[in-house]
């Protein structure tokens, strides 16, 4: 079902808030994995605004959908969405990377309510998602398993072990997402290790593949809607995105994976607007 104008407006506004919160959250300590958090704001908004089943009052609810954020450095985008949805107080966003925090740079299931796995050592998430998908099917659960990987992360060989495994085991409750922001730490993906035709690769491995603009809410909605088919095949959505979207100085720049940033320059982007939670 396509989005109504009202739904779209709500989701876009949720995405804008996630992006703003992410920026302030990282600006407060003065640095962070800016690029890969900002590139997925709309996708995360859609996941938590319309797509996934979850309960902020019961983050471990047995029948919830599971999200494995394999590109674990995108934590701040996820933390912003979780805080907005009430998994924990928004004031926690002041604590990113502080000693003793429950919001570490990379996602950690043992610290943050709503985070389903410890991720950050790239390439592992899709295998874990396969395990969840097999387990859920065995238990007769209707839950879906979502796994977000980065295009640069696709360099890791373990992804392709999982890519072989999921179709061979008919895991149609698994929805993979690739943040195709075309950049990795050392520069453009095509220059570091050219991935070639990613769409053809996933298709050749036996996945249903769709491609969508990862900043366009209608396109995101269409991609997820098409991924619900129970046809015995796992799904891979390739989201075309812009790394560091929303921060003009860093957008699509080779140095945006991890960057320094100040509260003042974020204030400038938002014409002085600051979130209520900011210390």
């Amino acid at each position: 079902m396509s989005l109504t104008a009202e739904e779209k407006k709500t989701l876009v506004s949720f995405a804008d808030k996630i992006r703003m919160y992410s920026l302030y959250c990282m600006a407060r300590p003065g640095q962070g994995h800016v690029g890969g958090a900002l590139s997925i704001s709309e996708i995360v908004a859609y996941l938590y605004g319309r797509e996934m089943r979850y309960n902020p009052k019961d983050p471990k609810w047995k029948d919830r959908d599971i999200l494995i954020m394999s590109k674990g450095h995108a934590g701040p985008a996820l933390y912003s969405a979780l805080a907005i949805k009430g998994f924990f107080p928004e004031s926690w966003l002041n604590t990113l990377n502080k000693g003793g925090t429950d919001l570490p740079s990379h996602c950690d299931r043992n610290h943050t309510p709503g985070i389903d796995m410890c991720t950050g050592s790239l390439g592992q998430g899709l295998s874990i998602a396969c395990g969840v998908a097999i387990g859920a099917r065995l238990s007769g659960s209707e839950k879906r398993v979502y796994c977000m990987i980065g295009d640069g992360e696709t360099d890791e060989g373990q992804n392709w072990e999982a890519a072989l495994f999921a179709p061979a085991h008919g895991l149609d409750n698994l929805i993979g997402m690739t943040d195709v922001n075309r950049l990795q730490l050392d520069g453009f993906v095509k220059d570091v290790l050219d991935l070639g035709d990613l769409e053809a690769k996933w298709r050749a491995f036996g996945w249903d593949v769709v491609r969508a603009n990862g900043h366009d809410m209608d396109a995101i909605s269409g991609a997820f809607e098409s991924s619900h088919e129970k046809n015995g095949r796992p799904k891979m959505i390739l989201f075309d995105t812009v790394k560091a979207k929303g921060m003009p100085r860093l957008e699509n720049q080779g140095n945006c994976h991890h960057a320094t940033l100040t509260i003042d320059e974020v204030k400038e982007i938002y014409n002085g607007e600051v979130p209520a939670w900011l210390d």
């Binding site: 796995m117 295998s127 396969c130 395990g131 097999i134 999982a162």
Partner: peptide, 18 residues
């Protein structure tokens, strides 16, 4: 899982989550 030990350990972790 086939000759894919890394995947096996990841799948095992995922099974624990369930």
């Amino acid at each position: 899982v086939g000759i894919a030990e890394a995947n096996m350990v990841g799948i095992s972790a995922g099974l624990c989550l369930e």
